[in-house]
Amino acid sequence: MHKVCLMALMLGVSSAAAADSMWQPQPYAGVQYGYLDYDRGNLKGQDLDVLSLRGGVQLNSLLSAEVRGGAGLFSQRHHGEKTRINFHYGLYVRLTLPNSSPFTPYLLGGYAYSDSQAAGRHQRDDGGSYGGGVSYALDNRVDLNLELLRLADNDHTRQNALTLGATYRF
């Protein structure tokens, strides 16, 4: 039984590799809007609006490279203290799980930088960033997506973004 599973796996991997040998890299661009859950020190659960732009290239059926940048749209006050995301950017690798459905799940990992203002102080955070989402193909060029991304997570802050977006493939 193990040999049959191993042979089926090898056949699937070789088929995917053969199909990818004919793959042409495909650039894309997108926009996302959502809410960022911001925790820093005594500030817990600040819900901030964020708008992000992203661009990348799908290298093969499984792998994409992506750059993102964005900013907060509005600030929020908590006990008289203003909280705001000034800007953020990041570099990511996106792993897409191919299937024949219009719904396509994906995982995201990379490095991000976030610049914010919290409790009257300028804050800068960077480090590993990761998340996942699902895209829904409207046609062969346009996707809608829902995503959860951990933008920053370190000893000082935790920033999670839940976003809705659209992507256009060129």
Rank of each mutant, 00 (worst) to 15 (best):
A16W: 05
A16V: 08
A16H: 04
A17H: 04
A17S: 13
A19S: 15
A19Y: 10
D20V: 08
D20Q: 04
S21D: 09
M22E: 06
M22Q: 12
Q24V: 11
Q24W: 10
Q26L: 15
Q26P: 01
Y28R: 00
Y28T: 01
A29F: 08
Y33G: 11
G34L: 00
Y35K: 13
Y35C: 09
L36N: 01
D37M: 11
D37H: 10
D39W: 06
G41Q: 02
K44Y: 09
K44G: 12
Q46L: 13
L48Q: 06
D49Q: 11
D49F: 13
D49V: 02
R54P: 01
G55Y: 02
G56W: 03
V57Q: 01
Q58R: 13
N60L: 09
S64P: 11
A65G: 12
V67D: 07
G69F: 14
G69M: 12
Q76K: 15
Q76N: 14
Q76E: 15
R77A: 09
H79D: 13
H79Q: 15
G80R: 03
E81A: 13
K82T: 14
K82D: 14
K82W: 09
T83F: 07
R84T: 15
H88M: 11
L91T: 04
L91Y: 06
Y92F: 15
V93L: 14
V93I: 07
R94L: 12
L97S: 14
L97F: 12
P102M: 05
F103S: 05
P105N: 06
Y106L: 08
L108G: 00
G110T: 00
A112E: 01
A112P: 01
A112S: 10
D115I: 03
D115C: 04
S116T: 05
S116N: 06
S116G: 05
A118F: 02
R121S: 04
H122Y: 09
H122D: 12
Q123W: 01
R124C: 04
D125T: 08
D126I: 05
G127Y: 03
G128H: 04
Y130G: 08
G131P: 04
